[in-house]
Nucleic acid binder design. Structure first.
Lengths: 92, 92
DNA sequence: TATACATTTCGAAACATGTCGAAGTGTAGA
DNA sequence: TCTACACTTCGACATGTTTCGAAATGTATA
């Protein structure tokens, strides 16, 4: 997990998912969740690179992904977040 | 900080400092704090590598270091730990 | 001061990661 | 079925990281 967050681009992507709304939820009940292309906006990386980074975040268990039509939705996995904070509080 | 914790050896070192006792304190009032050589025990890495890793943890603000005679004491910086958990709870 | 011990600095080799473009897959809509 | 869009996979190259041994520094003690 730490390895996944060690890259500036991946950390930026994760932070977007983290700060916009509650983990696992859409920002608004009516709104859609974030999708891949949207997360990459303003980051100035190629789509293939973006895809690679989100795959790493997914592999680490930090981010969940699911196809919905043309887009692929992304959201933070709350359980993994809890595991991380538990580690940092010494409850290993 | 995430970059510093992304390496297995550094994570192991950090975890030793984290789980043994309260951050910034000795395990026991009478005991000494951890020192560099002690932290590397069982990790099977060269002293120069050990030194390099602790330097990285120090650079990231996760670990404090201070020379005390022949040894160099190490302990976890509590403020940095708090900053990390704050980030993970979305309070950025 | 000479010696032993603990740790750091430096340079080099092996290995891992980040990045892209080109080509591929999956999906919606004409 | 054809086209456009969203994303992924692959292969290649540049860059960054890990690791070590040799040599240097710092500290206590004989």
């Amino acid at each position: 997990m730490f390895k996944a967050l060690a890259n500036p681009h991946r950390l930026a992507l994760f932070q977007r998912l983290l700060t916009c709304c509650a983990p696992g939820m859409a920002c608004d009940p009516d709104e859609e969740r974030h999708h891949v292309g949207q997360l990459g906006e303003g980051l100035e990386i190629a789509p293939s690179t973006l895809s690679h980074h989100l795959k790493e975040l997914n592999r680490a268990g930090l981010v969940q992904m699911q196809r919905r039509g043309k887009h692929v939705e992304c959201w933070v996995e709350p359980a993994t977040l809890e595991a991380l904070t538990a580690f940092l509080s010494g409850k290993t």
